[in-house]
Simulated scan of single mutants.
Amino acid sequence: MRIAKFIANAGICSRRAAERLIEDGEVSVDGEVIDSPALNISDENIIKVGGKLVGAIPKARLWVYYKPLGLITTNSDPQDRPTIFQALEGKLPRVISVGRLDINSEGLLLLTNNGDLSRYLESPSTNCERIYKVRTFGKGREVAIRNKKIVIDGVNYHPKLISLTKKTVSNSWYKVVLTEGKNREIRRLFEHFGFEVSRLIRTDFGKYSLGNMKPGDLLEVTIDQNYSWKT
């Protein structure tokens, strides 16, 4: 197994982040600092990251977390804003998030201790649906979009569904279904149509749903056996 993949599967970080750690000289194999993420290793090698021993790859696990508003989906923040990992400290082994939700978004965030599983679930090629409830200011108008390509500032977006579900005098609710997770995709799409998003909640990701969970709730779930994520 390649060293970068081993580090990711051990739950240290993503494979890309592991490659950066190797480039920065933070990874050693049998006492020697390495500089190639393609180095193949075996169970007999001693791996250290940042001077700390990395143990055997644990069994893959998956959690559903109801991310509250006001938390950053990152390990550390230059602006010292609170992160999901600070909020979950002591409740989980070392995990990585499957994609992100921005500070002003809430709802379902998957967490796993396995880098391959995270990459599989994030990839648009797996066609995992992300379902959102989106509230906008003001009395909305009908927007019926299905599998349409939308280009905004040179970036291609492919929402599977945008549909008005409820409207009042003061605000409107929409259902949005995506199969990819581009940065601020929903907010950019709604700005494109002239709407201002006032609340954004992810309710589903693939086979998993918030159900009756409340902000801050954490639930370990079974990994769907139909997911072909092992490489």
Rank of each mutant, 00 (worst) to 15 (best):
I47L: 03
K48P: 02
G51Q: 09
G51Y: 12
K52C: 04
L53F: 11
L53V: 11
V54R: 02
G55N: 11
G55P: 02
A56F: 07
I57Y: 01
P58V: 07
P58T: 02
A60R: 06
R61I: 02
L62N: 02
W63P: 01
Y65L: 01
Y65E: 00
Y66S: 02
Y66E: 01
Y66G: 01
P68Q: 11
G70P: 09
G70Q: 07
I72H: 07
T73C: 15
T73Q: 13
T74R: 10
T74L: 08
N75T: 14
S76E: 14
S76M: 02
S76F: 05
S76I: 02
D77G: 09
D77S: 11
P78W: 11
P78N: 08
P78A: 09
Q79M: 11
D80L: 12
P82F: 11
T83M: 11
F85W: 08
F85C: 06
Q86T: 13
A87S: 13
L88W: 10
E89A: 11
G90W: 02
P93E: 09
P93F: 12
R94N: 13
V95R: 04
I96D: 00
I96S: 01
I96G: 08
I96V: 15
I96M: 13
R100Y: 01
R100P: 01
I103R: 14
N104E: 10
N104V: 00
G107F: 01
G107V: 03
L108G: 00
L108K: 00
L109F: 01
L109P: 02
L109G: 03
L109D: 04
L111D: 09
T112V: 03
T112M: 04
N113K: 07
N113V: 05
N114T: 08
D116C: 09
D116W: 08
L117T: 04
L117N: 08
L117P: 03
R119H: 15
Y120K: 06
E122A: 03
S123N: 10
S123F: 05
S123H: 14
S125A: 09
S125D: 07
C128Q: 12
C128H: 15
E129R: 12
I131Q: 14
I131S: 06
Y132E: 02
Y132N: 01
K133T: 14
V134T: 13
V134D: 10
R135V: 08
R135P: 02
R135L: 11
R135A: 13
F137L: 13
K139Y: 08
R141T: 08
R141Y: 11
E142T: 12
V143Q: 09
A144F: 12
I145R: 06
R146Y: 14
K148G: 01
V151R: 08
I152M: 06
I152W: 06
G154A: 06
N156D: 10
N156G: 03
Y157F: 15
H158F: 15
P159D: 10
P159C: 14
P159M: 12
P159V: 13
K160M: 05
S163K: 14
T165D: 10
T165F: 07
T165G: 00
T165P: 00
K166A: 09
K166G: 01
K167Y: 15
T168W: 10
V169R: 08
S170A: 11
N171F: 15
S172I: 04
S172R: 04
W173Y: 15
W173N: 07
K175F: 03
K175V: 02
K175A: 05
L178D: 08
T179I: 12
K182C: 05
N183Y: 15
N183V: 07
N183I: 04
R184F: 00
R184K: 10
E185G: 04
E185L: 06
